[in-house]
Amino acid sequence: MSRLRARRMTTLVEVKGLTVRVGDRPVLDNVNFAMQPREIVTVVGPNGSGKSTFLRSLIGAVKPSSGKITRKKGLRLGYVPQGLRLDPSLPMTVDRFLSLPSPVPAETRAAALEEAGAAGFANQQIASLSGGQLQRVLLARALLNAPQLLLLDEPTTGLDQPGQAAFYRKIEEVRDTLGCGVLMVSHELHVVMSASDRVICLNGHVCCEGHPEVVAQAEEYRALFGTGTKGALALYRHEHTHHHHHEGPCDAG
């Protein structure tokens, strides 16, 4: 009982029966979810499965049609969007961008840029950054308030493979230094499997959920991601769990 209570006290965010409709179409249907500190949770799912909508409802950008989202009192939130479509007519340096919507001390800005691997970008125009540089700047922005919960929406879109790997290592580092919970949406299944404590497989509703190994074996997961990814998954398991006898078809290896 007291253990349960303690868990409730530390829960960063709790989602109960979340349903989001766009017009008549339910994008999310009765989603239940809770997030603890220091957890890295990844949401996977096919296109249009409501992954981004789920994240956007957690930041308050999407209003639930029904259900409830409860944040821990005074929760500090960091959000890294999929990218930033800044109109080229808007002049904006990285430093200025970090001071929106409220002023941030110069040392804090510099420290966040350093932490995110974006030191030296401060005076560059946002529009002149490459995809990878922009992602790091967006991460720096999310770190400014030392978040307790970090939300990332496909943060490595447009990065090459080494870039992706480096970015996810960075996220783990951040989790270790800040002790924050990390919730991210990702397409890179093999990376996801190695970096996450928990995987949620979403397709409008939660299909399956649990430890990456468990989810990878789940029928619902295999039904969604089909044979196309089986090779990659098998490859991953081959690399990271060192079971040298293959359990599935492993032609890709």
Partner: peptide, 19 residues
């Protein structure tokens, strides 16, 4: 001013920062 700029740069970032 700052809130307007934030909303112009990204609506989602504005929501996430409590705007």
């Amino acid at each position: 001013w700052r809130a307007l700029l934030m909303a112009t740069v990204s609506e989602d970032l504005a929501w996430a920062s409590g705007g």
